[in-house]
Simulated scan of single mutants.
Amino acid sequence: MSEPLDSLPDRPLRQREVTALNHADAFSLVVPVDREDAVEADTREPVVVTERLILGTDDWVKGLVYDDGWRAVESVGIDDPDEERYDAMRDCEAAVTSYDA
């Protein structure tokens, strides 16, 4: 994976981490495709996590799935984010949704 994707923790992301990624300079957008309730292993506190994401920059959109590590199941290069990003996101969402671990 590329350097920004390598920075993701080796586990599903917590909702607050998805929010933080949305504010990071590395990505233009970070969209969780699904969310599920979980509990923190050490504190037993409830938390919302996601194992399926769409990440985007001005140059690409990637659909990621956590399956013993983050895997890009779709990657779409874009030249014009205003014109191409929506379709790229739809393609990535379809790949992420249909991924069967």
Rank of each mutant, 00 (worst) to 15 (best):
M1V: 10
M1Q: 11
S2V: 11
E3M: 07
E3H: 07
E3C: 03
E3R: 04
L5G: 04
L5C: 08
D6A: 09
D6S: 06
S7R: 10
L8N: 09
P9F: 04
D10M: 13
P12A: 10
P12M: 08
L13G: 04
L13E: 05
L13A: 06
Q15D: 15
R16Q: 15
E17T: 15
V18M: 11
A20Y: 08
A20S: 12
L21W: 01
L21Q: 01
N22K: 06
N22F: 01
A24R: 02
D25I: 01
D25F: 00
L29D: 00
V30G: 00
V30H: 00
V31H: 01
V31T: 07
P32G: 07
P32W: 03
P32R: 02
V33G: 02
D34I: 02
R35P: 00
R35I: 01
E36S: 06
E36W: 06
E36V: 04
A38W: 10
A41Y: 12
D42R: 14
D42Q: 14
E45F: 10
E45N: 12
P46G: 05
P46W: 06
P46F: 04
P46C: 05
V47F: 05
V47C: 08
V49G: 03
R52V: 07
L53M: 12
L53F: 06
I54E: 03
I54F: 03
I54S: 03
L55Q: 08
G56F: 01
G56V: 02
D58E: 04
D59L: 15
D59S: 15
D59I: 12
W60A: 10
W60H: 13
K62H: 12
G63R: 00
L64P: 04
V65H: 06
V65K: 04
Y66D: 13
D68Y: 12
G69P: 13
R71T: 15
A72E: 08
E74W: 10
S75M: 14
V76R: 05
I78T: 09
I78E: 08
D80F: 05
P81H: 00
P81W: 00
D82H: 05
E83W: 00
R85K: 07
R85E: 01
Y86E: 06
Y86V: 03
Y86H: 07
A88P: 11
M89L: 11
M89E: 09
R90W: 08
D91N: 14
D91M: 14
D91F: 13
C92Y: 04
C92V: 06
C92R: 02
C92K: 03
A94R: 15
A95T: 08
A95M: 11
V96G: 05
T97F: 10
S98I: 03
A101N: 14
